[in-house]
Amino acid sequence: MIDLTRVLDHARIPELPNPYFGKVRDCYDLPDNRRILISSDRISAFDRILAAIPYKGQVLTQMARYWFDHTADICANHVLDYPDPNVVIGQKLTILPIEIVVRGYLAGTTGTSILTQYKKGQRILYGHVFPDGLRDNQALPAPIITPTTKAFDGGHDEPLTVTEIIAQNLLSQTQWEHLSATALALFARGQKMAAERGLILVDTKYEFGTDTAGNIILADEIHTPDSSRYWRADGYEAALSNGTRPPSFDKDIIRSWVAERCNPYADPIPDIPADMITATAQVYIDAYETITGQTFVPDTTGATPLDRVRLNLSRYFG
């Protein structure tokens, strides 16, 4: 039973230093080059906050933990500790100014997705040339990287090509080559492990930063339903044949609901009903259990999730 009252809609804790509040995470910089990253239950799409989904922050933190553990041989990550189910203590990094998006299928609903742009008639996307006649959600011949600007302070991500990245000095050629090879290796590992669980890892985004020595480190999260699109493999072929959206394990369920009712980039977001909130929470829980093979156990300690987080972070209070 999903308790709709157990939500962490924010983690604004005045006793913690140097706050930064993002779309989904509430973060605090500690004076010793560490950062506290608290995953709230907010759900973001179309560059907006849509709702708060019970247990979502815990699911994302613990699923990212699973993937960080299973990809550490490919790329070092920022994680130092997990003091709470919703919290990561991470190494403070200088975040690189682009997001690396890897796509294995012609899919998506947002303005930067290749399917959205392809259906508008565009055939050169992110420097890649696409032929006519591709079907919605069709597999690409090989995964491609579609980088975007890293939008800070609530801005909008913009498509980039490799040529633009180098010309604008966003990354050096060496950095780009390292990042692209690493991202494709991470995606290949993710697709392989997902397939073993009856899932298709469709696309994902990675965020990288540099430490004080200039080393490139994987940051943020990895292969979660917020950063990635998953489909159930056993429903994919039927959906491809009849032109419907494959059964998914990601926030497309709520993105699609909103997009069917308004222009989500311009119109007010309609009130999202309780049954959609519950269904979305269940998608996150099902995703965790299917991908990791572990039973999800919500942490219900504390009068509220915020009370629990505050207690578990009290050692960091100034």
Rank of each mutant, 00 (worst) to 15 (best):
V297G: 07
L184M: 14
I217G: 04
T290H: 12
A151C: 00
K23Y: 09
S40C: 11
P54G: 04
C262H: 13
D81Y: 02
P14M: 08
D234G: 07
Y316M: 02
L160V: 10
R310H: 08
T210N: 06
A107R: 02
S241P: 00
T295D: 04
E260A: 15
L80M: 13
T163K: 13
F68W: 12
T224V: 10
I43K: 01
E99S: 14
N169V: 00
F317M: 07
T61C: 15
L140H: 13
F249D: 05
L37N: 04
A279H: 14
A274N: 13
K119Q: 13
R48V: 09
R189C: 15
G209Q: 12
G111L: 03
L8Y: 00
V258E: 02
V309R: 07
E99K: 14
T112S: 07
A142D: 07
V162H: 14
E15D: 10
I165M: 03
P247I: 09
I285N: 07
E237A: 14
G235D: 11
P17A: 09
R189E: 15
P247Y: 03
G108K: 05
Q122N: 06
T163N: 02
D26R: 00
S241F: 10
A181Y: 02
I222N: 11
V202G: 08
W257I: 01
V102Y: 05
V79L: 15
K120V: 01
T290E: 14
K150L: 01
I253P: 01
P268I: 03
F208R: 07
D136H: 10
A151R: 02
Q294H: 14
A151S: 05
I166E: 12
H178C: 10
Y66I: 02
T161V: 02
I254L: 13
L37Q: 08
A188E: 14
I144F: 00
I43L: 14
D234N: 15
A274R: 10
A213S: 12
T210I: 15
D29Y: 12
E158K: 04
D220L: 03
D275E: 14
E260K: 12
D29L: 14
M276W: 04
P147D: 01
V129W: 04
L134E: 00
R232M: 01
T295A: 04
S241M: 03
L50M: 05
A107Q: 03
K150H: 09
R65K: 15
G293T: 01
Y66R: 03
K119I: 02
I95Q: 06
T280W: 05
D136R: 06
E260S: 11
A64H: 11
E289H: 03
Y20G: 01
